[in-house]
Nucleic acid binder design. Structure first.
Length: 507
RNA sequence: GCCGCGGUAGUAUAGCCAGGCCCAGUAUGCGGGCCUUUCGAGCCCGUGACCCGGGUUCAAAUCCCGGCCGCGGCACCA
């Protein structure tokens, strides 16, 4: 059968299916990448491994990945860990970031760590000194002050030979932290003072601040703008997608490209991404974690906006991708509302999450009447998969306190009953009866085998803890399983065991 | 203060570069209905926006100017 024939048949037999497929394709579309040629695109995601990545960091990562896939291009993962002093890399973050990216289905073809490439930066620095595009500023604090006034440190005028000599001294450790600095010559009177002869390599006292990967081996460290320009060129990056906060940096980096005669990649700056009600900032999360260690469950606490947090909470990677792609590469900031995110997640989760009955305010009732075999499907779309409970006279059943006021209701999948004191009295078995009388269908839990559960409900910076009792079928699920507690919402199994711990995902 | 970037319904986004097809599309939310052994999903109907003021033009969400608001950067963070 040809593709067309299959489509025609599908259209005839299951018109809904094709419709759904079409819709999905539409959603996934991203705008074309400027200047992109199929097979000739190289992108990179360059996180600082000083902490776990969050939703905002995921934006460029996913966009790059998406474009790399669309244009059959190359994707590079580059760890930018060149500041052992103020942004000390976290050793565990390298792996955590890799794991998060894999979970997000971001594929990379090459991987680099900047702290292993210092010699490369030194080489380019020497070349730029040779070409007269850079100089060593030994004026210390005064150098900065001069530039602020549109002047500059006199060493700017010295010849290349002297500059190279000084640079070697820097590398060998002849200068202390702050005593010498390699600057890129731009324009000392540039209207934006931060662009005036910007700093490219500086000295860090690694005896005091050792780097977690290379220890105290290197004395001279490149700054962002320098290492990034060098790497983007050497790695053949054609398109740089990064946050808008880098706009000025782009202008600075152009000086390196110009001096070295390199081709300039396409720069795209995206706005900031916020997640309504969540903390995304790495530094804020670090602060909270160090100040209130006891109150949080770690970097992946479900109240944070880190990728690990969202995963733990039960947000699916497909949801994150969908939301980020729908925001696209706009320059304006975007605030993702939790309602929208959970709505997108719910659509995907609904198909995967089995339904489990649990009651939050359990009240034990005694069943009165003939024996009933209850058959409850794990998922309404797959009625054949089900578990069975038999209830007979004298059996104890837990129902939610709040449902008792209904007087008469249907125990889901079992029978229609009436409340009489602490007894549930059998009325009839037929569903039709319940439908006719518009009885509320409620979830219930047989006391025998019931599982105690603790449900964590994240709300802003609060983490409420609810207790509920679930039917024994819950025991069939291990950590990580997505579930829906009927009439309560979606949850993810956090811990299995004698008692269960669940994290509330969303309604 | 200086430099730069943005502003479409509650939220997000399409359209803006190449002005008319936009009394502005889509998703979500909200209101109503249908369906359904969940207050879940699905389906149908409705609700709701071009920051303000000028200008250019036969015609402006779209181009120009001014204002207002928001955001980013500010220099040995990335």
């Amino acid at each position: 059968m040809s593709l067309e024939e299959q489509r025609a048949l599908l259209q005839q037999e299951f018109p809904g299916l094709l419709e759904e497929e079409r819709k999905k394709e539409e959603r996934k579309t991203v705008q074309p990448l400027p200047g992109a040629v199929e097979g000739k695109v190289t992108l990179r995601f360059a996180p600082n491994p000083d902490f776990y990545i969050h939703l905002g960091n995921a934006r460029p990562a996913i966009l790059c990945d998406e474009y790399a896939k669309i244009y059959k291009g190359k994707m590079i993962l580059r760890f930018e860990d060149t500041d052992p002093r103020t942004k000390t890399p976290l050793k565990e973050a390298y792996d955590a970031i890799r794991e998060d990216l894999r979970w997000l289905d971001v594929k990379w073809h090459e991987e680099y760590v900047q702290s292993a490439r210092l010699e490369i930066y030194y080489d380019v620095a020497r070349e730029m000194l040779k070409r007269g595009c850079a100089y060593i500023d030994t004026c210390k604090e005064e150098g900065k002050r001069l530039l602020l006034q549109g002047k500059h440190c006199p060493t700017r005028e010295r010849e290349a030979e002297w500059q190279l000599e000084q640079f070697d001294k820097m590398v060998e450790g002849a200068f202390k932290e702050g005593e010498a600095l390699l600057r890129i010559k731009t324009d000392p009177t540039h209207p934006n003072p931060s662009i005036r002869d910007w700093a490219a390599l500086r000295i860090i006292n690694v005896e005091k601040y050792p780097h977690p990967l290379v220890g105290s081996k290197y004395w001279v460290w490149p700054l962002y703008n320098f290492s990034v320009s060098v790497d983007d060129h050497l790695m053949g990056v054609t398109h740089v997608i990064r946050g808008r906060e880098h706009e000025v940096n782009t202008e600075k980096q152009l000086y390196v490209y110009k001096c070295m005669g390199w081709d300039v990649p396409v720069f795209i700056h995206t706005g900031r991404l916020k997640l309504e009600g969540f903390i995304l900032s790495k530094s804020k999360i670090r602060e909270l974690l160090s100040k209130h260690k006891e109150e949080f469950l770690g970097p992946d606490d479900p109240r944070f906006g880190t990728i690990a947090s969202l995963r733990r909470r039960g947000i699916l990677p497909e949801t994150i991708r969908e939301v980020i792609l729908s925001v696209g590469i706009k320059e304006s900031d975007a605030t993702i509302s939790w309602v929208n995110l959970s709505s997108a997640n719910r659509v995907l989760l609904d198909r995967r999450a089995d339904r489990i009955m649990a009651v939050a305010e359990p009240r034990e009732m005694v069943y009165e009447g003939e024996c009933v075999d209850a058959e409850i499907p794990y998922h309404p779309d797959v009625p054949a998969r089900k578990r069975k409970y038999r209830i007979c006279r004298g059996d104890r059943i837990l129902v939610d306190e709040r449902d008792l006021g209904l007087g008469e209701f249907r125990l889901m999948g079992a029978a229609n009953v009436k409340v009489e004191g602490d007894r549930l009295v059998f009325v009839s078995r037929e569903l039709e009866h319940a439908l006719r009388r518009k009885l509320q269908v409620i979830q219930w839990v047989p006391s025998e085998g019931a599982v105690r559960t603790k449900i964590y409900v994240p709300q802003g910076l609060e983490l409420r803890r609810l207790h509920a009792v679930a039917e024994r079928a819950l025991r069939e699920y291990g950590p990580g399983s997505p579930l829906q507690l009927i009439r309560f919402g979606f949850v993810r199994v956090e811990r299995a065991g004698e008692a269960y711990e669940l994290i509330f995902t969303h309604e």
